[in-house]
Design a protein around this nucleic acid. Structure first.
Lengths: 148, 148
DNA sequence: CCAATACGCTTGCATGTGCAAGCGTTATGC
DNA sequence: GCATAACGCTTGCACATGCAAGCGTATTGG
């Protein structure tokens, strides 16, 4: 007999894989960015002063610092983010979302919301969905990456 | 105002990232396999006759056929899976889980269940968790990859 | 039948990612 | 103060992965 939470964790991973695969296709085709780039913009937008040190962003996204370094370069070239230095600590290299980045994020979030709508819409009442969201929220709270 | 299903989808992706990162560490350290290799074994174990053509497995895991080809080689060397051919159709190369693969899967599932327990245990009643699992299940049903 | 198409699998190439080492900067302990 | 450690970031390397092309096999249409 499979434990209920084992089953839930399995389904959660599977559902995420599927959603991520769909989003990857849409984001690439429609907006020319990756799912991870979308999350970079979202984290920056929601951070205090709309900026984060690279290491902090890496922690929140569960990826390595070197990956952040390598994602930053093309995003800077596209003008989606900028690199700011800290006056007090020369080690820090803040990533800051630009106006162009905000615009791109806004467009991409519309696509995200549309896809999320396909997934959830008209299938559950608000109470059920609220509880679902709450469970998910507690799974990640305590983590550094509370985006929501 | 953020839509409820948009928020839910965001949290779902974040939760999955976090769980996957934790599992990757444990699986690698304790069992010497990757999360994807774990899923290969799980899909094979649950498939009819404990075997699947490579393309079918790729679809269920949302990864490309070439990735399956490249994951298969080391797993065969470790004796976790075997390659069987189809008598009727020489194009098919079934992947079959071996006894050693079953044993490895069993050990790894124990670790998986333990980690899932850390996530969920003692925080929600069975009804809530059941509903949570049901919502997740419907998100992926209709998909080819109904593992559960 | 046979040609054309579809299918399953593999391989070359390009890209994304983590780890470990290295560099420069800041903090700590004496 | 100064040596040592810790920290933030980048880079070299290895590895994982997707895409497109190629190969062999089966199916389809005439």
């Amino acid at each position: 007999m499979e434990k209920l939470y084992e089953q839930s964790a399995l389904r959660l991973l599977q559902a995420a894989d599927e959603i991520r695969a769909r989003l990857a296709g849409e984001f690439s085709a429609v907006h020319g960015i990756s799912v991870n780039e979308f999350f970079v913009l979202l984290h920056l937008q929601r951070a205090t002063k709309h900026r984060l040190p690279r290491v902090e962003l890496a922690k929140r996204m569960h990826i390595s610092a070197s990956t952040i370094t390598r994602m930053a370069a093309p995003m800077e070239k596209l003008g989606l983010i900028e690199r700011h230095t800290d006056e007090r600590d020369a080690r820090l290299a803040f990533m800051v979302i630009t106006d162009a980045g905000r615009e791109k994020l806004s467009e991409t979030r519309a696509t995200f919301a549309k896809q999320a709508g396909y997934l959830f819409d008209d299938r559950w009442d608000e109470a059920t969905l609220n509880q679902f969201s709450t469970v998910l929220h507690r799974l990640v709270s305590g983590s550094v990456s509370n985006l929501s």
